[in-house]
């Protein structure tokens, strides 16, 4: 199949096939595949609790047929963990999607039109970024009420400045370029210029950043669930499972361990893919991480 590709296409493909991207993608594809297959194939209901003596709460640990053991209500942990894949991933995608779209528009408008609008918007972003993200997310989630949806909103709000700043930087750097001036002279609408001529320049860094942020969003949401401000029982969500599992550390090590392992693997996958994409899309940064304060900032802001 590869034989039919043009040499350029092959080269591009080779550029994207960084070892870290491959490893990251394999982990992710594996987990997603299981996340699709397990709910379809598992004989167990993730919500059905049990008082059956043959399926006691916190069974003897991982043993056939409960590969990863059962939880405190006798639910099969393996089934629940993979039911959670679609929930956790969807939550991360929506959260990041929301933050990217809002942040992108703010950055574009701010950078392109400049002036008072720019100062006001950027001051707001500065304020948002100067509150430790998770604290703000807690305040927002606590004010809105504990639910998975509100946790997503909270995390999205907190991460908007990352994309707004990124987008503004790119917009500022290209808006004086000849082709943008030409487009303006030709009488194209600002809307068209912004989305057709300026936005494409930002795609590479935006993609890299949001890939890494997907992992962070999962950690954020899981952490909010962990302290009781995210998913609510009986929703199968990793952070919530960890939180409940914590009460049974002594009796059932598997209960908190496996959901946590899933979070780790997914985050690792996104980080590896993000690193790989960064190397592929921006050869100047190959193998390095540009040390500018703003970037260190973003990194930290997004670390959990």
């Amino acid at each position: 199949m590869l034989g039919r590709l043009s040499p350029e296409a092959k080269e591009t493909l080779a550029r994207f096939m960084q070892p870290s991207t491959i490893i990251g993608l394999s982990i992710l594809v594996g987990i997603v595949a299981l996340g699709v297959i397990v709910p379809l194939a598992s004989p167990y209901d993730p919500y059905a609790t049990s008082e059956d003596v043959l399926r006691p709460p916190l069974s003897e640990g991982p043993a056939w047929p409960y590969i990863l053991g059962t939880d405190s209500l006798g639910r099969d942990l393996f089934t629940r963990i993979f039911y959670a894949v679609s929930i956790d991933l969807a939550v991360a995608l929506v959260t990041v999607g929301l933050a990217v779209s809002i942040g992108m528009v703010i950055g574009l408008v701010s950078g392109y039109f400049g002036g008072i609008l720019d100062s006001v918007l950027m001051r707001i972003m500065d304020v948002l970024i100067s509150i430790p993200g998770f604290m703000l997310a807690i305040a927002v989630a606590a004010a809105l009420g504990a639910s998975l949806f509100n946790a997503m909103l909270a995390v999205a709000v907190v991460t908007i400045p990352i994309y707004a700043r990124l987008m503004r930087g790119v917009t500022l750097s290209v808006k004086e370029q000849l082709y943008v001036t030409a487009a303006k002279e030709a009488g194209l609408s600002s809307f068209r210029i912004l989305f057709r001529h300026i936005l494409p320049n930002a795609m590479a860094p935006l993609i890299v950043q949001s890939t890494i942020e997907l992992g962070n969003a999962i950690i954020y949401i899981a952490s909010l669930s962990f302290i009781g401000l995210g998913a609510q029982e009986p929703q199968p969500e990793w952070g919530l499972m960890l939180s409940t599992g914590r009460k049974y550390l002594r009796e059932a090590w598997w209960y908190p361990t496996f959901p946590g392992l899933m979070i780790f693997l997914v985050v690792l996958a996104f980080n590896l893919i993000g690193d790989g994409l960064r190397d592929a899309l921006d050869p100047r940064l190959r193998g390095t991480l540009k040390i500018r304060r703003s970037i260190v900032w973003q990194l930290l802001k997004s670390e959990t």
């Binding site: 952490s223 361990t257 946590g260 979070i263 690792l268 590896l272």
Partner: peptide
């Protein structure tokens, strides 16, 4: 990369 991917909620419990 393993270090930065490690969720505190999990690491602490392990």
């Amino acid at each position: 990369v393993i270090g930065i991917s490690m969720p505190t909620i999990w690491l602490g419990m392990v």
